[in-house]
Structure formats: C-alpha cells, structure tokens
Design a protein around this nucleic acid. Sequence first.
DNA 1: CACTCCCGCCAATTA
DNA 2: TAATTGGCGGGAGTG
Length: 892
Amino acid sequence: ENIFDRSRMAPKTPIKNEPIDLSKQKGCTPERNPITPVKIIDRPQPDPWTPTANLKMLISAASPDMRDREKKKELFRPIENSEQSDTPDSLQYDIVDDSTVDEFEKQRPSRKQKSLGLLCQKFLARYPNYPLSTEKTTISLDEVASILGVERRRIYDIVNVLESLQLVSRVAKNQYCWHGRHNLSQTLKMLQEAGELQYGELMTFQHKEQDSEYKFGEQKKETIPDSQDRPLLDFSEPDCISASANSRKDKSLRIMSQKFVMLFLVSKTKIVTLDIAAKILIEETQDTVDHSKFKTKVRRLYDIANVLTSLGLIKKVHVTEERGRKPAFKWIGPVEFPGKTDELRGHSPASDPLPGTQRGACAQYQTCATGKQRFTRHASFNSAQPCEANRRKVSSEPNSPRQERQDENYSKMINLAAVCRQKIEEDTGNKDCDTKMILNSAKNSNVTLPFSRLPVPGDSDFCVNPLPQAVFPVLQADVPSFSLPIGISSQASHPSTPAASKTENGKPTLVPNQPFLCFPSSSLFMLCGGLQENNLSETLPTAGDVGNRSAEAQAAVPPTVCQKRGSHKCSSPSTPVDDEEPAAKKQTLEQRDLPLSLVVPKKPSESPKAESSPGSGCSSALHLETYRLDLTSPAAPEAANKEFTKPLDCQEQEKQSQNKDPEEPPPGNEHISKENANQPFQPQYLYVQPTAGLSSFNFLFSANQAPGAISLAANQLPSLSVPCVMVPSAALASFPLVCPPSFTSPLSPVPDGSFSAAASTNFSVSSLASTTPVFISTTAVVTPKVSPAPSVDPQQPAHPALHLSPVLARSCSGVKVESPMCMGHPVTLLKLQQPSSAPLTPKSIRPAHHEAFFKTPGSLGDPVAWKKNEGSQTRNASSVQRRLEISSTSPD
DNA sequence: CACTCCCGCCAATTA
DNA sequence: TAATTGGCGGGAGTG
C-alpha cells in the first residue's frame, strides 16, 4: 500500500532538490490510484529553512524521503525489472525485504533507512552474485543513483568498495561493469597473500610482532614509517602518478577498503577493531596524524564496513580489551582460499579446484607483490571478466592513472598487511586478543574463545565444510566452548579430514575437529558435530570457494535449495546443503544465482533409496549417514529434508542462494566436498525459539528427515514439512540437552562414530536451558562408513534418551512447520555429532563453554540485535511479510 | 555522551 | 571548462 502511495506521490512530487529525481519521476506509474493523499507539503517549499528544517518537516510529513525513493524506484522499475529478472533470488529477496521493511518503518525514514549498508544491499540486489560469464552487466551510475534514489556520491562509496574487491570494475565514465562474486575468492586470496607476504608467516606462527621489522607504532600513528613498507608501492608505480598522485589516490576509499580487508585476512582472530584499522591506515597514509584525521578515517571505515557488511564479509562485533569495549568487525567471509598462502606463494595452486583462473590469479599475485599491475589479471579470469579488463582499457589506456593506482595500492596493501598484522597483534596482543576479545554480541561473551583461534584458516575450514552457512556470521567465539571437546572426538574418526584440512593442524585442532557450526544467523544455529569427518579434508580446498558463496548461501540449504529464497526455509541440514558449499566453486555458483531457485531438482531426489518413506527419513539420521556413504548421491534424499528454518537470516544466504544443486556432481572436487557436507548434516535438529507467534513452543526438527518429508517442503517453499518435535519451550528448558543418542547404527560397528558417546554428550545445558533451549543432536552421524545399514532402525532409539526423542523419531513424518515461523524467529539449530567414537564423557565435554554456547541464542538476546550487526537488519521484522511476499513472488 | 555515519561541500581528476 | 570522482569533516541520529 505504501508503495502505492508513494508512487502516487511521486508523480507529483515537487521535487526534491535534485533534478535527478524529477527526471525519474516522470515515469511513473502509479497505476495505483489517484489518491494522493497526502502529498505532503512536500519539501517544496524550500524556503528559507535550513536544510535540516526541511528535512524534519519532510520527515514529519511522512517519511517522504523514503517515498521518494520508492517512487523513483517504482518509476524506474521498468528498467530494473528487466534486469531484475535476471537477478538471482537473493536479490529479489532483498528487494522484498526492503519493501516490507519500509512499510513497517515507513513512519519515519529513519536514518537507518538511508544507511549506506542498506543502500548497498539494494544495490547488490540488483545484480546477481554470480552472473553468467556471458552476460556482462554494466552499471550506470546515474541510473543506479536515480533508481535507488540517492545521490550519486553515495553510489561512489559503494562502487569504490566493490571495486576494491573486484566485484565491479570501472569501464568508463559513468559506467561500471558488474562481475559479481566470481572472482571474489581470488581477490581475497590475493589480498591475503599480499598481506601475508610480508608478514604472513608471523601471523601464522603468531610470532609476534617482534619479527616485524616494521615498527609502525600503531600507537603512534604519527610516525612515518612509510618508506619501508611502502617501498613496493612507491616504486611500483614508477611512472606516474605515484608520487604526485598518491595523495589523493592513496587515501582512496578503494585502497582503504583493500587494506581493511587485508587486515581481516591476515588477522588471526579475524576481528579487527576500528581504531586499529584506522591507525594502520593512517600510518600508511601517514600524514598528519591528528585526531581529526583519525576521526575521518574512522568515518571512512564505517563506510567501508557498511558495504562489506552488506556483502556478508564482515559483521559488527565488539571486542573487549583491557581498555574496554571497542567497536570492531569480524570477518565472516571465506577465510581460506584454495591456494592458500603457501601455494600461492610460489606456485600456482595446482591443487586448487579452480582451474585456470586461479592460477592466473596466483601469478597475478606475484605481480602484485611486485607492485605491478595486478589487476591486469583480470584478463586471465574467466570470460566474464574480460569485460572488465577491456573496459578499463577502453576507458583508460593502459597506464592510466587508475590502473597504476591500483598497482600501487597493491603494493601498499601488502605493506599494510604487514603493518596491520603487527599492529593488530600489538594492539590486541595477538592472542591476547583472542583470549581477550570477547564478543559482546554474544553476551556470553564471557566466553572466550577458545576458538578465537578458529579463525585460523583451518578453522574456518572446518566451519565451512560443515555448513556452508558458516558463512554467516558465525560466531565461533560464541560457540566455542563446547565444540571443542566434541569436536575432537569427531576428528578422531577421520583423521584425514580433520586436521588435515586445517592448515594449522597443529594447533588448534580443536577447532578443526569441532563438529559444530554455529550460525549466528540470528536465530538459527546449527551445530554440526563432526560433520566433516571424512571428507572434509577435501573440502578444504574448496573451502575457499565456499567462502565465496559462503556468505550467503551457506545458510541456505542447498538441497533445499528450493527454498532458497523462500527462504524461509532454510537449509536443510542434510547434505545437500553442504554440497553447495563445496560446490561453492564458482561454477556452481552461477547456477545458484538464478536458477537456484528452487530448482528443486534434487529434491525429488533421486535418492534411490527410497527415501521415499518418510519414516525412514526420520530415522534418517542414521540413514543419512549411510546415505552419504552409500550414496554419494546423497543429496537427493536428504536434501530435501531439511528445512529449515532459517529465518530471515537467510537473507544472506538467500542471496547466495546457494543453489547449488546437490545433485550436480559436477566437478569432482565439489562433489566430494559435497558429500562431505552431506554427512554432517544428518541428524540435526532445529530449534526454534518461540518467538513471535509461537511463543511457547519451541520446535525441534530433526534435520534429517525423511526425504519424503522433504519433498514436501520442497514444493512449497513456505511451508516446511518437517519432522519435528515441538516442544514447549519450557520443556526444553528443562532439558539440559537433548542429545540423541547416537544413532549410530547399532549394527555397524562403528568405531568411531559411536555416537553413544555422543549421547553422553549431554551437556548440561541446563543452565542455559531456560531461556534458550537448545537441542543438540548428536548426530548420529556418522561414521560414515559405518553403517550403510540403512535400515537400522529408523528411529533411533537414541532419541529416546531424551524425552523428546521418541517424538523425534517419529516425528519426522509428522510435523510440518510452516516456514514462517521459522523464518521469523531465530532459530537455533544445533547439531552435534559426535564423531568420534571416542567416548567422551559427557561431562568432560560439557565445559562451561557449553553453557555459554548454548546460551547463545538466548543470551544473544535478541537475535535481532545480532542481525543488525550483520546487516540483515530488516529481516526480522518482516519475516512474515516476507514470507508472504515471497510466496507470492515465488510462485515459480 | 559515545558511537555511527549521512550529507553534501568542494577539490582533484577527467573528459 | 564542464563533468565526474571522491576526500573530508560537520554535525545529526541512535542508543
């Protein structure tokens, strides 16, 4: 409705100051009625008022701004529509959200509505994350600005950051070429490399700064270190600009953005506080270091951070250090890249899945290092890119300043990285940080994060593997506690996987092992124990890919794909999802974007197995496992199942829409990974907080449902059929933990997998319980090998262990949940597997962490808050709406 | 009050 | 010279 109004209004709108708007308005369309209600006095009267006054007035009038924008949008729609069609689901999603949001908020156009982050989301929504290589999308600044209803200046802010990550490239004067995330991983890799080059090792080893030669004092911002670091830079651009030019270019948002990203990539903790980043950046720039300058830098960082947040690469958190709590951002994007540093460094990463492209990239890196034009490499990239390169050329000749600029940047970046690293370490005190840092977001915070280390590549991997979603804002930190123990166990089983994956092996294995995943995504949490187990290893490589997509998708369930946008749903635990991840690879990505929709193909899943029987599904846990084993095809069956609840959070995911088809087997690597992924899923439960409407009930779903169930779901996005159990929240509370006993197949001797152990897992969650009940299923997981025996009982007895369990077991068939619910609220999904046979004693396991962890959901308090951080912002509110909308939209 | 960060002036670059 | 880019920082919105 609002929209209508707006449109109406628009036509008449007097004008905003901006001519642009007017022009746009022309369009119009409001077929809507001629109502024109309000019209508002509009801003018309420019009067003597101060701008502010006008603003206020406007606002009071009725969030005119928004309307205007909306109108504009509407007007332009035609154009956009065409484009949008292409856009992947995710986009649509976003869009939807926006509208919904607006409605809610229309009241006043709060500042948030104008935020760069939101604007960026809108912007991103217009383009597919993974555009087909063939299609190259060009972006007209003017057009976008008008469509989005903002001044062009703002678009520059966005574009500059995107350009730094090569999501777009400037083709010509008002034109940018959209590349999407295809190269994101490569770009990140490069950045990471650049960062590491200098000091990477240190980081890795965590040596401290000592090594570093640099001495930037971060503290001192003022110092002028540059020469050393910069060297690269400097010379790099022998030619031109550099010297003179630097001035402006160096400060460029683009460069800052790259540096900022580098900091994250180099950081062990993956958390960078604004002040540190600002200091580092300043140094680099190193001009005067006054306070004012610092402030300015911080402002810019916020700008960048907003964009990165919209991209799902970072999220806001707070770190508590000695000094107190500081605003910071945590990297939630892909952490490892196939080649990873080592490879990168010298050699091309043969290993990496991504073929040529990467290599090219690598090479480029090197170049970069040298300081030469790194970007050139685009050429090497896929077809898609070419455009970029070309354009660039077109617009500017080869040595155009711009390019150089970039080159320089790179070199600088590298330097920076080193510096950053140091600083970070220093400031935070490296590990200190880890330990010290607490994520406020989670109140739990106390938790320290054992995990903190996680960030290490390895860690990330593991995270990733299991769930694509990991992408989310996972808070490792939060979770940490329990994971550890468990994780370990998991590993045991498969040696290969675990550690291997991680680079770090040595250290924090824990992490790696960890079976869990935590999805911060607001409400949903998923924990996976030991998922990876086997396959993981492979994944690693993929991980990078994953990363790409990561962000979004993960959450989404791959299999479920369907849901995708529908989002509401969420991922299914089951394998498929995972697949995606792995699949992550770009290729898959592509598909995702668009198609993903629902494609469902899989759902039907071929599963030979018959997943048909739903019931079986339930038991599925076991089966699942088996499936995976057996099947490889895994996807099918399970895939469907899950569902999930992912709430809005999904958005992110959505974006990604992962889509990958589970089925696809495509590239080997991926497959593998997928498979791996699959495993993990299995028995999972979703816990839904009673939020909204359901106040009192909490739901648990077993992730694994019978395929059949799934199927249903698939069809209807909106509703999920989930086998689940509903538990009154209260009830949950009472449970300390629910762990399905190991599903393990009785039959199989699973050595490792003994879930039983898992069972033991009970954590005493009790403490937490109250608020946030959490379920953990041990997954039965797994042992992959173990039993293929499918049949084992369908129901795992295990469940019984819990009160719920019985229910669960059968539940499969039964309950359907509507997605809505899921969506809206935060759901926490935990899945634990116990992988290893190792019997963990329950107790041992349960460390305090657990509590924290568990709490998390609750503790988090409001999910919403979280979300915000993430940028998901709007979701919550509109969940319902969204749902509706989606359904409507998604009729497809 | 501190944190965010919108807004848009206006300079640097480009065309 | 005009237009495009984009640095920068005042100061407002939020919590």
